[in-house]
Design a binder for these strands. Structure first.
Lengths: 230, 230
DNA sequence: GGTTTACATTGTTCGGAACACTGGAACAAT
DNA sequence: ATTGTTCCAGTGTTCCGAACAATGTAAACC
């Protein structure tokens, strides 16, 4: 079949795309559910499901008895909107990638500081171990997964639920465009030294050093990625 | 009528509550949609809509032909799960509040640093203006809104979409439990000095000072809130 | 023993109907 | 002329029952 995803999924993506592309101004009336169903050739229930998912993202407002209205995602959008913002038009939106990478760098840096204070011995050992595995990783794809595993442990050790959830969101983004983020692990030898240093600092409980190392590690990856995007 | 929320909404909240309370172990089979419909006394379509919203949160995995399975929210949950985690059992979960406030403090601090470098003149003036309005705010509720307005401008000035979206999420949380967060603006005179100083630092383009001021402002609010929660 | 087929289970989509809420238009009262 | 009321068309919400499609399992087959 042509459709690899469910009908409501297709409706959902179509609407997200339309709204995010600005084809409807904020506050503007969306076509009625019945009209959308007719236009897209699907059942009313499928339209409804898609629309309600839009609503959960904070992209539209739907009130019983009144028309559906588009909301300004910069005011009401939650972090889950990111996945759809960054991948618009097939390729990555460079400005969005810049924002994500910047946020990632700051988030990971602070996570490292917290982790240095809160990590368990087991977590400290795991960070070291993963750094070594990264040194001998077979290929770039394997390295990518190890890279994300390393950060996952770091954030778990930081003991902050918000950071954990935001990073889950960024990971989802990662996994959907794995090839495009490949530059993050290029030129690995230079990076491995930083993983090791950061793991040492976390294990030693030196928050400032851990933050600085992770910050620079993330910055290095950021530079690689942004350069590759041109 | 008495039921302020739609049927699928109620199904959704019921399921979220069940999953987040751990009444289903990760990987465990959820009741079938038909069974849920019968048990809750609603239509299959309503169950489906609720379930799909669960799926969008990353709380369950639903595969055509197979049973629905619960996922571990610590691994797959997005930031939108926060709203449901923090308000469990009617009152605020103190551990979650601690995480949110900690993340907020770090996020705002770094936003201030970025804002100092990127703010427009208009934004700098607005921050000052809002600080003055806070000084003469009528009541605590008015102060709360001004407080959030102040941070909204700061984050807008920081020019990072991720921060913007995460803060939208935290604000949604805020607005749903406005009374419970009231301590954030208590003892206002002491706080006003910090708003002013921070606004000055951002206007002057002094990133370090701006970050430090906002960091301490947020920390002060954090202390007030956590003490009030006992 | 390994492969294939058939079936039961479960999610997915449909079409159509009835219900409930909202905004505005027409009307009535002041 | 203004205010309050009633009614109606438009729109979202929920229902029902049926048929379709994917998955996992177990029986049947070679």
């Amino acid at each position: 079949m042509l459709s690899r995803s469910s009908l409501p999924d297709q409706v959902f993506h179509r609407l997200v795309s339309d709204v995010l592309a600005g084809r409807f101004a904020p506050g503007e009336r969306l076509p009625t559910q019945r009209a959308l169903a007719a236009e897209l050739g699907v059942n009313l229930a499928s339209v409804r499901e898609g629309v309600k998912r839009l609503e959960q993202l904070g992209l539209v407002e739907v009130r019983h008895g009144d028309a559906m209205r588009v909301r300004d995602w910069r005011l009401h959008g939650g972090p889950d909107v990111l996945v759809h913002l960054i991948a618009r038009a097939g390729s990555l939106d460079v400005e969005m990638v810049r924002s994500v990478m910047e946020a990632r760098r700051l988030l990971l840096g602070e996570s490292a500081r917290l982790a240095a204070a809160r990590r368990s011995d087991e977590q400290a050992a795991l960070l070291s171990s993963l750094a070594e595995q990264l040194a001998g990783a077979a290929g770039d794809e394997a390295a990518q997964h190890l890279d994300f595993g390393w950060y996952a442990v770091l954030i778990e050790a930081a003991g902050n639920v918000v950071f954990l959830l935001v990073m889950n969101s960024i990971r989802a983004l990662y996994l959907e465009h794995l090839e495009l983020f490949r530059p993050i692990v290029s030129d690995r030898d230079e990076l491995v030294a930083r993983y090791r240093a950061a793991a040492r600092a976390v294990a030693a409980g030196d928050g400032d050093a851990a933050a600085a190392e992770v910050f620079q590690l993330a910055a290095a990856q950021e530079t690689r990625l942004l350069q590759a995007l041109r």
